[in-house]
Design a protein around this nucleic acid. Sequence first.
DNA 1: GTGTGTGAACTTGTTCACAGCG
DNA 2: CGCTGTGAACAAGTTCACACAC
Lengths: 241, 241
Amino acid sequence: MSNLRAVAPGPTTRRIPEATVTRLPVYQRILEELLRSGTTTVSSELLASSARVNAAKVRKDLSLLGSFGTRGAGYDAAFLIEQIDRQLGLDREWPVVIAGIGNLGRALARSQGFAARNFNVTALLDTDPAIIGERVDDVVVRHLDDLPYIANEVPLAIGVITTPASVAQRVADLMVASGVRSILNFAPQVLEVPPDVLLRYVDLSIELQVMSFYQARRMGSAGDDRMPVIRSVGLTRGASD
Amino acid sequence: MSNLRAVAPGPTTRRIPEATVTRLPVYQRILEELLRSGTTTVSSELLASSARVNAAKVRKDLSLLGSFGTRGAGYDAAFLIEQIDRQLGLDREWPVVIAGIGNLGRALARSQGFAARNFNVTALLDTDPAIIGERVDDVVVRHLDDLPYIANEVPLAIGVITTPASVAQRVADLMVASGVRSILNFAPQVLEVPPDVLLRYVDLSIELQVMSFYQARRMGSAGDDRMPVIRSVGLTRGASD
DNA sequence: GTGTGTGAACTTGTTCACAGCG
DNA sequence: CGCTGTGAACAAGTTCACACAC
């Protein structure tokens, strides 16, 4: 409270709240589906019901981009898509490197809709000699240790880790050393990276745990068959590749 | 203050805030890693630095489970894991069905650490005759249309959709009709389900978009600001809005 | 001393309700 | 009219700071 918060948010860049940022891509997707079905104009009400949120929230979110709606009519879908793209920084290319070309890494590398959003899968890495050299959608799999050299040619922005947990930290270290500033980690492994590196976990197990909580809560009061099965801690911590 | 906190991890349903729920599995994972490395007691400070959050937040979160820490010492890791398991509803079995046995579905079905958390992959579904009948880790792939019959035998709790976008809605409808109350959707498709069904999207493209935003913002203003770390991936939540 | 547990202050996010524009 | 945009009220979540238990 003694601290004065000196710097005013500049009039130049609007500050988009974090919560809004996570919703923008969702609106994006809905808008694209609407466009494909021939709809060109959309109301906050419709967007809201598709996104399963409150209509006021949609309007607040979109108003942060600027006043792009038309009162009485709604928003122009195509125009909105452009604006969101710009805000999310999707009007430039983002070179992506994927480490760990197992089932999951392969699925992601092949996944369409990456290129559609300016994410270029530029490098695929593994350590298995049987996999190195293989082509996945025109990108050749190279050895993990080549990362520094690759990073020298292309400034890699985002790293995706789909390796077994046991090597995930080493991969993360290499990525950080090669200039990667954002890491998406699919390995079931807690990673340590410098504080200025953006780190996100995508962990299906965590997703399921959160879901089970809500479902348990919903069933909660009715049936009180609480099983006292307390599992011990010898977990298989397997590499879901 | 005068409030004596007696024993009572009461049958009274403690209401755990949503934000806390999403962090509990993260603590869980860290605790398990600590245990394996031989640590039995952990401070909120250490947990916090691994989870990249504030120590006060860790203490608040954990205190919601009950007063399980020891002042001056910290928390007992093994005991804490048990408590979190119980709170998350992981002390019972959760039958999971996966629809769409392509690269991703296969990777998920094989993923260890599901069973480790009481998530049983009970059914695998597809529509491709070439895939039906195949075994993936001892579970036979069956036809999508068999879902109602399977659900009759086992009350499926969680459905995972890893199909192409074009059939995702149909799969979701079938799952809902078969009693599935939580759906995890990997297909790049906006789904409509009844409001009481918990729906979460896991969408790498959305993840990357959010990352690109923060990275773009960082590059934009050469400044101080701390980067928010976003951990879990849920985008939309059903029920209780 | 050390580190938890927690009221209280503060920040962020959500919803309401309505003015105002097309 | 209908629907956006937004201040103001409200709710949720976070951080601080310190009493207190070990």
